[in-house]
């Protein structure tokens, strides 16, 4: 059973890597949310450094998955785990991109004319971050209730995004001299919304991983526990 034990250690190691990457991405999102509320050059720099680390982690995880598939012939839950690991690493990398984008936009605004944030923006950022944390919890525990919560929160991020857009568009119409800053703000809002969407995609992936159920386009099929 030595070979199997080695295989299980590899799987455990891969799982730890995903969790570590999730933690790094969580910090990037936290910086983004903080940057939107109170932009600073320091936050921008830290976000850039984190993003480099996230990209490197994705490559390592992907490579590890390829190696396990090639050498170990994983089957059933092991195969689902590897497939999910690759998908989640890709989703996390995209979250990292969006988080860095938010930090970049916030920095731009800070360096130019400060503009008023939509009232819903802070809540949108916090909710997107909470969804990401919960989806990573679901990855570790397979808790269907947590997954359901993430999925149920997604329409709220949509509503908040629309409210932010409406607010920004109104300000753009009122003050054309700050149209560039508002455009950056608009894109920051869009990125935060997409972080929420990606968190939901991760939660959906965890259902496949733990329950062998594809719910991506059919949330009603999520088994009640």
């Amino acid at each position: 059973m030595t070979q199997l034990r080695h295989f299980e250690l590899e799987l455990a190691d891969l799982k730890r890597s995903i969790v570590a990457m999730g933690d790094m991405v969580d910090r990037a999102v936290a910086l983004a949310v903080e940057g939107v509320a109170s932009p600073s050059a320091d936050l921008r720099e830290r976000a850039r450094t984190l993003e480099d680390g996230i990209d490197a982690m994705e490559t390592v995880i992907e490579d590890r998955c390829h190696t396990i598939i090639a050498l170990q012939n994983p089957m059933v839950r092991d195969l689902r785990f590897i497939i999910s690991a690759m998908s989640i690493a890709s989703d996390l990398e995209q979250v990292g991109d969006h988080a860095e984008s938010v930090s970049k936009r916030a920095h731009y605004i800070a360096c130019h004319n400060r503009v008023e944030n939509p009232p819903e923006l802070g809540e949108l950022g916090r909710l997107a971050q909470a969804m990401l944390r919960q989806s990573m919890d679901a990855f570790v525990t397979g808790d269907g209730a947590v997954t359901r919560k993430v999925i149920e929160d997604e329409p709220t991020t949509d509503r908040q995004t629309k409210a932010c857009y409406a607010f920004i568009q109104e300000r753009m119409a009122q003050d054309a001299s700050r149209i560039k800053e508002y455009t950056h703000l608009l894109r920051a809002v869009s990125s935060l919304e997409q972080i929420g969407d990606l968190a939901m995609a991760i939660a959906e992936e965890t259902v496949f991983m733990h329950q062998a159920q594809m719910i991506r386009h059919n949330h009603d099929s999520l088994k009640k526990e």
């Binding site: 199997l4 295989f7 059933v76 092991d78 195969l79 689902r80």
Partner: peptide, 15 residues
């Protein structure tokens, strides 16, 4: 091979 009902089956297939 993707979602067996019985744990024994899955344990055997996954070695």
């Amino acid at each position: 091979f993707t979602n067996p009902s019985v744990k024994q089956t899955e344990d055997y297939i996954t070695g």
